[in-house]
Design a protein around this nucleic acid. Structure first.
Length: 275
DNA sequence: CTTTCGTCCTGACTGC
DNA sequence: TGCAGTCAGGACGAAA
């Protein structure tokens, strides 16, 4: 379930392998992922020189030559590997990029919720998938006053609001649960009732959980020279996510972590510490 | 306008 | 052992 920290770790790993290289051959092994690839995508990739890799929310932007950007979203089950040509293609390797130093980048996505698009340089701000995104949670524009104002008047649980990429970009189900736990705020609380002090705590919780996860990803990246060459995934111990019935860390409450459904998704929280 | 809900997809897991 | 059923969830588009 790649959310911002996993995407950031994939971006860093890909940058090490791709930046400055040329794509000698791009193979699109099916015509679409979540939606059809743009026309002539393979032709645009073939021979392109790769510049910097950036990230916006859960999207990776790969600069190509001077005039284009490859947009990549990992969806639910998207994974990227960087290996040699000797490794055989795996099932669900939908996109294969061969680089001029022999590196082979493979995008594997069993559920095909992922997405690739090509954007002309400078038109990123107008791209429909990027235009509506809220601020980056680790940048200055995301602070207590912004968040309080964004949640004000919203008659939806704060959990649902935080998953909305228009409010803040990059959070998914897991990190929202963990951030709400850190902030001591119930996921069931209406967004409209958050107010400034809780918003400040929420910003701090979001920032700390994302920062720690990115650091953990960085550690895993240092030994990513594994046989399979997979970039960006790492083990993490969550306080509440996936721990239904267990006591949360530093809490002796009887019933332990609760699991409820919100907007069709599982939410985990501690009813004693989160109000 | 806001909010909710169904849809896409397949691997992992559960229960009979 | 085998098979049906359920769950997981990001983002979009339709419906309320």
């Amino acid at each position: 379930m790649p959310e911002l920290p996993e995407v950031e770790t994939v971006r860093r790993g890909l940058a090490l392998k791709m930046s400055g290289r040329c794509i000698t051959r791009a193979e699109l092994r099916r015509p679409d992922l979540r939606r059809p690839f743009p026309p002539a995508l393979a032709a645009r990739l073939d021979g392109a020189r790769i510049g910097a890799l950036r990230r916006r929310g859960k999207y990776i932007l790969i600069e190509l030559d001077a005039d284009g950007v490859l947009l990549l979203h990992l969806g639910m089950s998207g994974r990227v590997t960087a290996g040699s040509a000797a490794l055989p293609d795996a099932v669900h390797d939908h996109v294969v990029l061969r680089l001029d130093d022999g590196t082979v980048i493979r995008f594997n996505d069993p559920r095909r919720f992922g997405l690739l698009d090509y954007i002309k340089r400078g038109e990123e701000g107008q791209h429909p998938l990027l235009a509506g995104l809220g601020p980056e949670p680790l940048e200055d524009g995301f602070n207590g006053s912004y968040l309080a104002a964004s949640l004000a008047g919203r008659m939806t649980p704060v959990k649902s609001a935080l998953i909305d990429q228009r409010i803040v970009a990059g959070l998914g189900n897991i990190y929202v649960c963990e951030a709400l736990y850190r902030a001591g705020i119930s996921p069931r609380r209406l967004a409209a009732s958050i107010g400034r002090p809780r918003a400040e705590r929420l910003v701090a919780g979001i920032r700390s959980v994302l920062t720690e996860a990115i650091e953990a990803g960085g550690s895993s990246l240092r030994d990513y020279v594994q046989a399979d060459g997979e970039l960006g995934y790492f083990q993490h111990r969550w306080a509440v996510y996936g721990h239904e019935g267990e006591p949360c860390p530093g809490c002796d409450c009887g019933d332990g972590v609760r699991r409820i459904a919100q907007a069709g998704r599982s939410t985990f929280y501690c009813a004693k510490r989160q109000r």
